[in-house]
């Protein structure tokens, strides 16, 4: 499996990380090195083996679906790069 520049561009887009056009060949090369390393997994016989979900046999606990916390708008917004009138502010999303 070899990754070309188009795939590298697509992955960067999916990951929402801007990669300049001239950096794509090097990025594709890096992906290929890492994926080459990962390819070894193809040698393992995994027939009949379930993919691991939880490393310790535990049931995730459930709790009652009720409000347990809240009323701290100021704290929630205190680290926002841009907060206005009690909301997070972002560039225009809907035309």
């Amino acid at each position: 499996m070899s990754i070309d520049q188009d795939t590298a561009r697509r992955v960067a887009k999916l990951a929402r990380i801007k990669v300049e056009e001239d950096a794509l060949p090097a990025l594709a090369q890096e992906f290929n090195t890492i994926l080459g390393f990962i390819e070894q997994l193809g040698e393992v016989d995994v027939e009949g083996v379930e993919p691991m979900v939880s490393v310790t046999p535990m049931r995730l606990k459930r709790r009652e679906d009720v409000v347990t916390d809240g009323g701290m708008q100021d704290k929630i917004l205190s680290n926002a790069p841009d907060a206005r009138e009690g909301f997070f502010a972002v560039p225009k999303v809907v035309e």
Binding site: I38, L41, V44, V46, V49, E50, P51, M52, V53, V55
Partner: peptide
């Protein structure tokens, strides 16, 4: 990739 790796992890 991902499911195969999780199977190997189980092994």
């Amino acid at each position: 990739y991902y499911n195969r790796a999780r199977r190997v992890r189980a092994l």
